[in-house]
């Protein structure tokens, strides 16, 4: 039997990579994880410990690009580069990186996403002004999920 924890690790690694499909055989058990079909939802396990890592497969609805141009109003969306927990501030009692009205530059850090015990900086990827914050501090986000709207 492949243990659930190991499976979680594999799915997590897949979510963070460009691998679409993986086929694992181990002691008579076969597992096929296919991102495109999003069928790899693993069985829920007993929550023995705090585990922030998300194990859901990537949904198809988000496109795999950094920014999305929304019509002709020149609105950009900053998208989440990975599955994880979103943090809007560098430390618990610090000010948020950005708020509605913040002027940002392309390489500014606008948030942090935690996955597998790593904090990953989210860069704006675009110059402009934040018009909308779409996620809450501490919220679990999907790969490609819009985080901010930038004008």
């Amino acid at each position: 039997m492949i243990n659930v924890r190991e499976l979680e690790e594999v799915i997590d690694l897949m979510n963070r990579s460009s691998v679409q499909k993986i086929h694992i055989e181990h002691e008579g058990t076969t597992v096929i994880i296919d991102k495109a079909e999003a069928t790899a939802v693993p069985p829920k396990r007993e929550q023995a410990e705090q585990h922030h890592v998300q194990t859901r497969a990537v949904e198809n609805s988000y496109e795999e690009k950094e920014d999305q141009v929304d019509g002709d109003t020149q609105q950009h969306q900053v998208l989440s580069p990975m599955v994880g927990t979103f943090y809007s501030r560098p430390e618990e009692d610090a000010d948020p990186f950005v708020q509605v009205g913040s002027k940002i530059k392309s390489n500014d850090t606008v948030g942090i996403i935690e996955a597998m015990k790593l904090f990953n900086d989210v860069e704006a990827g675009v110059d402009g002004e934040v018009t909308e914050v779409l996620v809450d501090d501490g919220q679990v986000v999907e790969f490609g999920q819009p985080l901010f709207v930038v004008k």
Partner: peptide, 20 residues
């Protein structure tokens, strides 16, 4: 054992982060 699992997870995450 929980700490060791977390370290193992961190290790995979770090090597992935280096590759990316």
């Amino acid at each position: 054992l929980q700490k060791e699992r977390q370290l193992k997870e961190l290790k995979s995450a770090v090597s992935l982060a280096f590759k990316n």
